[in-house]
């Protein structure tokens, strides 16, 4: 418990530092909200007046404090391109991104564990080599290409879904879920491949340990050996890896969202960057940083639960 509280303390400090650094970075970039609002050709005096009004002339640290105070209350400012509250914009995009992430994580877990263990009975045997080749292919295929392939086969040839026909979850939850399946596959495949390889190597390494020989000597079958002894030891590095992947997909799969025309965070990020919509970019950067830090904290806590040696 103490450990968990300590971890959460570290997490909060990390988030404050990250948000300050990103705030600082945006305040250093030339061109601010006043210029963005009034346009490049606006009257210098008008821009200065707006600056004064928006409080942009105050020291960065005061502006940051102001921003942090509102952010804690859920107010991340207003988007300069849509003239809508940032929180509302992000909240609208989040369901698609999070659902896509959960979907992909489920696929990654369901596929990579069995596949990773499949070849380990005989390392470098035929099955192991087949799994290795398969995972190499999975790692090598770029996501956008996979997305195009999936769209072509299932959307155009088989006509199983409407290409680019995103369904709003509030209107049709079932349609929304089935639409996101293929994008989730596109996100998951390269990560599955990496994970499969990772699990395979971890199992092979663990199987060479002395305690496995002891377990065999007790009369364990290969299956029991794997489930009762090896798997729990394999889980420790794997949990960390899974958490890093989860953070990665939660941050928004920019390419896949683009290919499948999903209105998620990744797409919002791209349009906001190209329109210099800094309040939105700032909010998304903090969202991404938070997911990474939170996921890593979760991994640490899980690791500590799994491994008695670090307790």
């Amino acid at each position: 418990m103490k450990f968990i509280l300590k971890k959460i303390g570290t997490l909060i400090i990390t988030l404050v530092i990250i948000s300050f650094l990103s705030f600082l970075a945006f305040s250093l970039i030339p061109g601010d909200a006043a210029v963005a609002n009034l346009g490049m050709d606006a009257d210098e005096a008008a821009v200065e007046a707006l600056r004064e009004e928006l409080g942009l002339n105050r020291p960065v640290i005061v502006q940051y404090g102001d921003w942090l105070f509102s952010a804690l209350q859920g107010d991340f400012g207003e988007s300069t391109q849509y003239h809508l509250p940032v929180s509302e914009l992000v909240a609208k995009r989040l369901p698609a991104t999070i659902t896509l992430a959960i979907y992909s994580m489920i696929i990654i877990t369901l596929v990579s564990f069995p596949l990773g263990m499949l070849g380990t009975k005989k390392p470098d045997g035929a099955m192991d080599t087949a799994v290795t080749v398969l995972s190499q292919i999975g790692m090598a295929v770029p996501q956008f290409f996979l997305g195009i392939l999936l769209t072509f086969f299932f959307g155009i040839l088989l006509n199983w879904f409407t290409v680019g026909g995103y369904v709003n979850p509030q209107e049709d939850l079932g349609g929304f879920l089935s639409f996101l399946l293929l994008p989730a596959v596109a996100v998951a495949v390269p990560k599955c491949a990496t994970m499969t390889r990772y699990i395979r190597n971890a199992v092979v390494a663990q199987k060479k340990m002395d305690y496995v020989r002891t377990a065999r000597g007790k009369g364990n079958s290969e299956k029991r050996l794997l489930l009762n002894h090896v798997l729990i030891n394999v889980m420790m590095p794997v949990v960390t890896m899974l958490a890093m992947m989860a953070a990665d997909v939660l941050a928004g799969s920019i390419v896949v969202e683009q290919v499948f025309n999903i209105p998620g965070l990744g797409r919002l990020l791209i349009t906001s960057i190209s329109n210099r919509d800094y309040p939105v970019v700032q909010a998304i950067v903090i969202y991404i940083a938070s997911t990474v830090v939170i996921m890593n904290t979760l991994a640490d806590i899980m690791y500590q639960k799994l491994d008695p040696r670090v307790r």
Binding site: D210, T214, A215, H229, R309
Partner: peptide, 15 residues
């Protein structure tokens, strides 16, 4: 039954 040389590594560390 069998007993091995290195009891630290011969026991499962997480059970």
């Amino acid at each position: 039954s069998m007993v091995f040389q290195e009891p630290m590594t011969s026991l499962n560390p997480v059970l």
